[in-house]
Simulated assay, not measured.
Amino acid sequence: MINGVNLTVRVYYIGDNASYNDQNLSFSYNYNNIANKTNIKLIKITSDNNVTIYYPTCNIGASKFLSLEEISR
């Protein structure tokens, strides 16, 4: 409970349809496609007043923004 609001936090694996052979990865998420272990975890936060926040995150490796130097290579 935060500031009088009940929050429920759940973590799921969701379907992973990315082509890992590409230099740039692109994902399209289906939050209802709960799967066994994949490379994408979905953190779902729901409040008791019907507000839901979805946060997909990589299960492996690390994500970061590219620097201008990396982009210009």
Rank of each mutant, 00 (worst) to 15 (best):
53 I>L: 14
9 V>Y: 14
44 K>R: 12
66 L>T: 01
73 R>E: 11
3 N>A: 07
1 M>Q: 13
29 Y>I: 05
65 F>V: 12
6 N>K: 14
8 T>P: 01
60 I>A: 07
5 V>S: 07
71 I>L: 11
62 A>E: 13
42 L>R: 01
24 N>E: 11
32 N>A: 11
66 L>C: 01
59 N>D: 11
36 N>S: 10
4 G>T: 12
17 N>K: 10
39 N>W: 04
69 E>A: 10
73 R>L: 10
14 I>S: 02
65 F>D: 10
66 L>D: 02
26 S>A: 09
54 Y>W: 09
39 N>K: 09
54 Y>T: 04
9 V>W: 11
72 S>I: 13
41 K>W: 01
12 Y>V: 03
39 N>M: 06
70 E>A: 06
22 D>V: 01
61 G>M: 13
13 Y>T: 07
20 Y>S: 00
32 N>M: 07
41 K>E: 04
29 Y>P: 01
33 N>K: 14
1 M>C: 13
23 Q>T: 15
72 S>L: 09
59 N>A: 12
52 T>E: 11
17 N>H: 14
70 E>R: 00
40 I>K: 01
4 G>F: 12
22 D>F: 06
39 N>Q: 05
20 Y>L: 01
43 I>K: 03
53 I>E: 06
66 L>I: 02
44 K>W: 05
66 L>H: 00
22 D>M: 04
34 I>F: 08
60 I>N: 14
40 I>S: 02
19 S>R: 00
15 G>D: 14
3 N>T: 03
9 V>M: 12
1 M>E: 15
54 Y>V: 02
55 Y>S: 08
45 I>Y: 06
61 G>P: 12
28 S>Y: 14
58 C>I: 08
16 D>S: 09
49 N>W: 07
15 G>E: 13
6 N>L: 10
70 E>C: 02
8 T>V: 15
13 Y>G: 04
46 T>V: 14
23 Q>H: 13
69 E>K: 08
26 S>E: 09
58 C>M: 10
62 A>Y: 14
13 Y>N: 08
72 S>T: 10
46 T>D: 09
65 F>S: 10
2 I>M: 08
30 N>M: 07
11 V>E: 10
33 N>F: 14
56 P>S: 05
22 D>Q: 07
32 N>Y: 10
56 P>T: 05
71 I>Q: 00
2 I>T: 15
14 I>E: 02
61 G>N: 13
61 G>V: 14
73 R>I: 06
13 Y>A: 03
43 I>T: 07
20 Y>I: 04
39 N>L: 05
57 T>F: 09
70 E>T: 03
64 K>T: 06
66 L>Y: 06
70 E>G: 00
5 V>H: 07
8 T>M: 08
36 N>R: 03
19 S>V: 05
70 E>K: 00
5 V>P: 06
39 N>Y: 06
50 N>M: 04
29 Y>F: 15
4 G>D: 10
34 I>S: 01
53 I>D: 02
48 D>F: 11
31 Y>K: 05
48 D>V: 12
59 N>I: 03
35 A>K: 11
55 Y>H: 07
9 V>E: 11
16 D>P: 08
52 T>M: 05
34 I>P: 04
